[in-house]
Nucleic acid binder design. Structure first.
Lengths: 255, 255
DNA sequence: TCCATAAATTCGGCCAACCCGAACTTTATA
DNA sequence: TATAAAGTTCGGGTTGGCCGAATTTATGGA
């Protein structure tokens, strides 16, 4: 999971967390299901579940266990720690509507990108929920937008820690190439992703600063490559992105 | 925490969870701080933190540990499990604006109420974040609204499990009295809270059904008791609440 | 209705691993 | 540079996590 492991760890905690993650993946499960999936004895799983239930992180209905709403409070807290969060939501929605694209707001944490908010329209069809998911900054428009505003020293740290793994044949995998690209992004103010993360998907992103003057995150809009004319992608969309970034920073700085 | 404890539990997991909760309460902390707060040795805390970091639930910057954005994904999942969630957000905002009150949307889980969404206006001043917090259903307007739509059998189960603890001198603490009140709520369609949870705070709530025809949650609006005329509280606000409940159910049933 | 099957839960006991304390390393301050 | 304070590593004792077996509860035929 994380780059800097190695040291001693608490196995029981990892087991509990695996149960939590499996409950999410299976959308609720029974004791035996979990025991089979995780290769543990049913009695062990039962003890862990009893623990999680007593701490209110899991609820039991019948013989099925589910994650509880306890996580809402923790998420609300971590969200609010980022000063930009709520304002970002409505601008993301606005972006999605103006561009008719999938729009997201992402931030950097520990050298990777995290989806903070994704527009999921009225007809929430293709939004296989990505909120909270992590991704490599160098593979996406929003990620490159954020990197372009970080000190080069920090960019190098991030590349050292996470590398530049390829996801498609267009992914930037060379450090010098990435740094040159970031210079271009910094100058343009907008970053592009030309099928670098997903085949057939283009995206454009723009960074925004927080009240402390440092980069707080980035908006991006994505679209199937064939559904987007070159002009729209390289002129219109960047204009909209820059406008939204501007408004965002203005409103954000006033609160 | 939970009513049905008793069985065997995993101590190490409870310790990790306590660390998570303490990191939230302290808004980030160092090893020694946590060790002092939880009365554990620094080395133990360190091992737990290393575990949580490796699983991506905690991030370390310098010597300070913070909860990570990992919780966003879990919260997004548990939120989406409730079919009503996103539509509810905007209606809550709408309610707050129409009534100029603090508005919330709550659901029932395991016999208690949980704040799913709270309106926090543009000037997020007095919203000491309550999202994810739990409360006793019988003490609030939204809670009584939900109870009024549950089978009496289930209400009795809930009272058996959680009791009817008093929070102010107005809190309903008698089972028969509660059941009579719920009948009145069912007939009116609206529930009132007359300083039953907090001295000086009145509230009104309305239940809403989900697509399955069972109660999905409740909206409520709260206000300082002295800032609210009797007419507004007993006539205007209920009208607004019933209207919003109606619109909600209509929109919710279409998606 | 009763039996057969499967799953959940409880419980005894072994030994892995959790926890502490001590030693060591790093960082901050004078 | 020295001193202190905090973070981190590591050895070892013993707690308690884990498994397996026994018990209880739930399910579905016949």
């Amino acid at each position: 999971m994380n780059a800097n492991d190695g040291g001693r760890q608490v196995q029981a905690t990892l087991t509990s967390l695996e149960i939590v993650e499996t409950l999410r993946e299976l959308d609720g499960a029974r004791v035996t299901e979990l025991a089979d999936t995780l290769d543990l004895s049913p009695s062990t799983v039962h003890t862990h579940l009893a623990t999680l239930v007593s701490a209110d992180y899991v609820v039991k209905s019948g013989d099925i266990y589910h994650l509880s709403l306890q996580f809402l409070g923790l998420a609300d807290y971590v969200r609010n720690r980022r000063n930009a969060y709520r304002v970002a939501d409505s601008y993301t929605d606005q972006l999605a509507q103006e561009t008719e694209c999938r729009a997201v707001f992402v931030v950097e944490e520990n050298g990777r990108g995290v989806y903070m908010y994704t527009y999921s329209g009225k007809y929430a069809v293709w939004t296989y929920s990505t909120v909270g998911k992590r991704f490599h900054l160098h593979q996406t428009a929003a990620g490159k937008a954020i990197l372009s505003r970080l000190p080069r020293e920090r960019v190098n740290e991030i590349v050292d820690e996470w590398g530049l793994p390829a996801s498609t044949e267009n992914t930037i995998t060379d450090r010098e190439e990435l740094l040159a690209e970031l210079d271009a992004v910094a100058e343009r103010g907008v970053a592009f992703n030309d099928e670098e993360q997903l085949e057939g998907v283009k995206a454009a992103g723009v960074p925004v600063n927080g009240t402390d003057g440092r980069v707080a995150g980035a908006f991006s809009v994505a679209s199937p490559a064939n559904r987007m004319t070159e002009d729209r992608f390289e002129t219109e969309i960047p204009k909209i992105l820059l406008g939204v970034a501007n408004e965002f920073e203005l409103e954000n700085s006033m609160s």
